[in-house]
């Protein structure tokens, strides 16, 4: 059982780095949340400034590959994936768990379940060894990550044993993700969403 103050700290720190944090009671609720934000967003639009920027022809071409709304959820268990697929079909949204190299222009939502989370910095820890899972968290405009509360640690030091074990059983690609992709390279002005997701939504799942 995670102490409530650890959950509060996680929420505070994650929000401080622009993540949207919402508690959910079940995976079903997480799916509904995801479909809801997918329905509300424009298809394949870069949030804040849209696709209207005039680009070089090559960059424009890549944009053409996106037409319908796409959610990628490569790491889900079969049963859960089927449940999410059913909901997506009802709304005309494409759900995929692979072939993301064909969609590098961008997808709407990457849906993942975090392996761990770190309260001290509001970070999620995602074993992204699967290339499809990795890409889902990189090329999506919105990354929705479910964090089971049982996986929440106070600090990264508390996860040393687990993470080292994964590293020693490599190859592995582990990611600490805190907030959306960001840069301050032009005049030190913070801009969100430079190469990665423009939004990070964290759904805190009360799993036990």
């Amino acid at each position: 059982m995670v102490a409530p103050e650890v959950v509060d700290l996680f929420t505070e720190k994650a929000r401080a780095v622009s993540a949207v944090v919402t508690p959910v009671k079940s995976l079903k609720e997480a799916f509904a949340y995801t479909l809801d934000i997918c329905a509300k967003k424009e298809a394949c639009q870069l949030l804040v400034s849209g696709c209207e920027e005039a680009l070089s022809p090559k960059a424009e071409d890549l944009c053409e590959t996106k037409a319908t709304k796409i959610i990628a959820a490569p790491g889900l268990a079969k049963k859960d994936y089927a449940a999410l697929g059913k909901l997506c079909a009802e709304q005309g949204i494409v759900l995929t768990d692979g072939g993301l190299r064909e969609r590098l222009g961008g997808i709407d939502i990457g849906f993942t379940v975090a392996d761990y989370a770190i309260a001290e910095t509001g970070s999620l820890v995602l074993d992204s060894t699967s290339e499809e899972l990795r890409l889902a968290t990189m090329i999506s405009e919105i990354h929705v990550a479910v964090v089971p509360l049982s996986k929440l640690a106070a600090t990264a030091f508390d996860l040393e044993t687990e993470l080292t074990a994964r590293m020693k059983n490599g190859p592995s690609y582990l990611a600490f993700i805190s907030g959306a992709s960001r840069t301050a390279d032009i005049e030190r002005v913070l801009a969100i969403g430079v190469h990665g997701p423009l939004e990070l939504h964290i759904l805190l799942l009360e799993d036990k």
Partner: peptide, 18 residues
């Protein structure tokens, strides 16, 4: 920053479709 957006740990030759 308390932490950067990404801290990435890469071990070994990971899956790469191409």
């Amino acid at each position: 920053q308390a932490i950067t957006s990404y801290v990435t740990w890469i071990t070994g030759a990971n899956p790469c479709a191409v």
